[in-house]
Every structure is written in structure tokens, then in C-alpha cells.
Design a protein around this nucleic acid. Structure first.
Lengths: 248, 248
DNA sequence: TCATTTAGTATAGTATTACTATCAAGTGTA
DNA sequence: TACACTTGATAGTAATACTATACTAAATGA
């Protein structure tokens, strides 16, 4: 069980929503050897892993460096996670679950189908709200990890074997959730899932490119998340039609 | 200088074109320490690297394994490439240059603006034609490497430093070339470069997902390159408008 | 033609990575 | 009190990602 502390002020869609409560969700127990949520070292391990992967990049990140950071040993970390790939997968599972929760939460009571899609685009292209809890993960870092490292969990030779343990389920669920909102908007559209993953993946690499390889984008200013958001929204409504439930 | 041997029969767009000639292009000399094209070991090194990276995946690929494969030593390989990341970059530079050449070549004398875009989508979503030359790279393997490993050359912490040596120029050029054809088709479209990279990247991961994580797509049959091609084409012409030079 | 540079090979060695094994100490609980 | 369970300390291994040195053969060039 993972606890999310939500304490944020959202000024999105002209309403101000203040949240301050807890949510819990499960993470597939085949990702870890021992649940990091059940101990202090475990929780510290994941939190500091996010800081270190952000700082060093996944390739330079090692269990040795993490052990030093949390004043523990490699042995202890290996008791929780088989290897660093699994730890990254754990972090991303947390993110995918959290994102699916946020989508569900933010769409609550929003009936306008276009608005529902806009909310999703906004969530995918803007940073997660920082929580005030000291025990929570650094959302700005988590966001950068999702953008720069997430493809490394599935672009591996043994993806088939890894996939068998259902560790990509939260990504698939998020994809299905967004696909559902797409189909609600335009039930004739033939590729809701592919469009869903395209939205997710494109929001990652357009953000990455606009910062690191701007010539691969059309960014002009330095407001890259606004840029990505506009690009994605523009193509989404051109693909699905400007007004809901009818083909163009 | 790199030599391409083209020997292929294309049945695309109802015409049969038979090609059998050579093309050469330069690869940025800051990628390598010594030009692999200038020696037999060098050429064998790159060719076998493609085979090995395909077979093992980039993470499991090492210079030691490559040395054994080409009956040479690690030392020799290190004289050509600083590290395996640079070797992958060399292979991808070759691919990006080749793809830009293919785009230019296949668009020659095609005036219909929609047809021009369709040709690009076809090139991005279908396997490269295999050449008959024994000395040439294995195109099927190269294709899989581009799909599964290409993002690993830019999703690294030191991307800024790597970018300074202009090693991503062929990717940027390919992006600019496609962006040009997009703008020709619809001069009002605001994001030609972002759409261009989205086409390239999306064609990679939709192909990857349709084979390895099909739930993230809408694939039904097993003809995944046809599927990706249809999805991308549908997407592209909805974004740019069904008929050229007018906004929908 | 002889001297010099260049390319490839052989061998050796280092620091780090990615683990595994063993055992002792502390803590919680039945 | 005894046992399970977790963590830590220490040690060790095979592989990785290199670097250094020195020798040989071939090409170049004055």
C-alpha cells in the first residue's frame, strides 16, 4: 500500500480546488522482493532513489551510491529490489497509478467531453503538484524521471518476460482510461489506445526535446510545458474533430 | 565516406522501380576517433555491432563481445570509438542520413503533396529494403535497433555536451526535411517540426508496442507495420487536413 | 632506401558495477 | 525464553569499462 499526501492548490479551469487528504493504492508485489512501504529504510530508499536518478541519470545511478545516501548497505537494498531496473519500474508504477488516480479525480463531475480531454492533456504536460509532506517524493524530480527514463523500462531485450509478471499493468490501465475518454468524445475514432499512448509518449519527448534539442520542435519561448500542451491539444482535437461526437 | 548499395524492387505507389547503384555520404568525424570506413576491421566492427546490438540489446552489448565476434581485441575497438554509446550514435547517424537520402530520392518527381506525405509515412513505418551486398549492414536488424535503441542516444544526462559536437545534426536534418514537406502540404500548420518528430518517434513506439505490449495499441491482426502505417497516416491527414493547402 | 609515422595486436592492469554469501546483532512476538 | 525476522558488516566474485605499454607490420615520404 502506498500513501499519497495531496496538498495542493489548483487554479486549473477557473476553479480553485484545495485538497488535503490521503489516498492509497497497491503496487504489484512482483516488482519488489520486500515491500519498501513496510519499513523506514524501504521508504527512504525509494525517496532517495528518485533524488539520485534525477541527479545522476539512470545509467550512472547505482545501488552502492544509493546505499551511501541512505546510510545503509547494498545488501539491504538488494533485499528489497532485484536490481535497479526493478526499482525504476517501482517508481514508474507508482507514477502511473498516481496519474490514473489524478485523471479520475480531476474528471470527477466534469461532464463536458472536450473539457475532460483538456484536463488530461494538462495533467500530462504540466508538472505534478508538489506536496508539503517531507515524507513524500519530490514531484519535480519524479516528473523529470518519467520524461527522461520511463522508456528504459520497456525498451529492453527481456520485455516479454518482464511483461508476463504484469508490471506494466498500471501503464496499460492509464492508457485504457484515457482511451475511454477519447472514445466518449468520438466513438467513431478507430485508434483510441494508440492515440492514448501517443499522447503520453509525445508529451514526454516534446517536453524533453523542447528543453534539450529544441531544433526538433517548434518551441520559440522558454515556456516549454505551455508549448507542449498547446501542440498536443491542437493535434488531439484535429484528430478527434473539434466538437465531440461527430466526425469531421 | 559511407557507401550505400541500393538493390531493391519497390512496389510502392503502383510503380516498379529497380535500383542498383551506389550513394555516399559523410558522417560527422566527431563521433569516432578513427573512421571505421577506412579499414576492413572498422567496417566489420560496425557491421557486426549491428548484428550484436540486435541480438543482445544495447545494455548487454559490450566491446569485449564485439571483439570476440570480429576476432580482434577491445583495444582495437577503443581506437575507433570512445565507448559503446558513440558506436550506437554512429549507427544511428548512418540511419538518419540514409533515411534522409531515401526521403529525397523517393520524393523525386512526385508532385502530389498528399502522395509525398504518404511516401514519408511508408518509409518510416516499413522495413528498409535489404540489399544483396554481403558487405552491407543487415537492414532488418538496423530497423529493430532504430525502433528499440535510438532514444537511448539522447535520453542521457550529458545530452547537452553531446549535442554540442553536432552529432544529432542528421536527425535534425531529417526532421527539417519532413517538416518542409508538411509545410508544403499545409503552410498554415504551426508545428511542422514537432509533428515531424512525433511522426518519427510515434512510428517507432507504435511498432514496438504492437509487437511487445499490444494492449497499448489497437492492433488486431499481426501485420503490425501495416497497422502503424494506417494509424500514422490517419493521424497525419486529420492533423493537416484531408486536402492540401487548406485548413479544416 | 632508410626513417618515421600509423595501424593493429597482445598483454596486463585498474576502478567500478552488479551482484552473492555468510554471519552477527537487534527487535518483536508467541 | 525462544524463535523469526530484519538489518548491517564484511567479504568475495565475475564482468564491465576502460587505460597503459610495448611489439610488429605496413604505409609514407624525403
Amino acid at each position: 500500500m502506498t500513501t499519497i499526501f495531496l496538498k495542493q492548490i489548483t487554479t486549473f479551469t477557473k476553479t480553485i480546488v484545495k485538497m488535503d487528504f490521503q489516498v492509497k493504492f497497491d503496487i504489484n508485489d512482483r516488482i519488489y522482493l520486500r515491500n519498501p512501504e513496510n519499513s523506514e529504510v524501504g521508504k527512504l530508499m525509494v525517496k532517495k532513489a528518485i533524488d539520485l536518478i534525477y541527479e545522476l541519470g539512470f545509467e550512472q545511478f547505482t545501488f552502492k551510491k544509493l546505499a551511501i545516501e541512505i546510510h545503509s548497505t547494498e545488501t539491504t537494498i538488494y533485499r528489497y529490489f532485484e536490481n535497479k531496473h526493478r526499482l525504476l519500474l517501482y517508481i514508474l508504477n507508482w507514477y502511473w497509478c498516481y496519474m490514473e488516480f489524478l485523471v479520475t479525480f480531476k474528471l470527477e463531475n466534469v461532464t463536458d467531453k472536450k473539457e475532460r480531454l483538456k484536463i488530461i492533456v494538462h495533467l500530462l504536460t504540466h508538472e505534478l503538484a508538489e506536496s508539503t509532506s517531507k515524507f513524500d517524493y519530490n514531484k519535480a524530480f519524479l516528473n523529470q524521471i518519467v520524461i527522461a527514463e520511463s522508456s528504459k523500462v520497456y525498451l529492453v531485450k527481456d520485455v516479454a518476460e518482464i511483461n508476463r509478471s504484469e508490471v506494466f499493468k498500471p501503464y496499460k490501465d492509464l492508457c485504457a482510461k484515457i482511451a475511454e475518454v477519447i472514445s466518449e468524445y468520438n466513438s467513431d475514432y478507430k485508434y483510441p489506445r494508440s492515440l492514448s499512448t501517443t499522447l503520453i509518449e509525445t508529451s514526454h519527448h516534446q517536453q524533453y526535446f523542447s528543453v534539450n534539442l529544441p531544433k526538433l520542435t517548434d518551441i520559440s519561448s522558454n515556456k516549454n510545458s505551455e508549448f507542449t500542451s498547446q501542440f498536443i491539444e491542437d493535434f488531439l482535437f484535429k484528430v478527434l474533430g473539434q466538437s465531440g461526437d461527430e466526425m469531421v
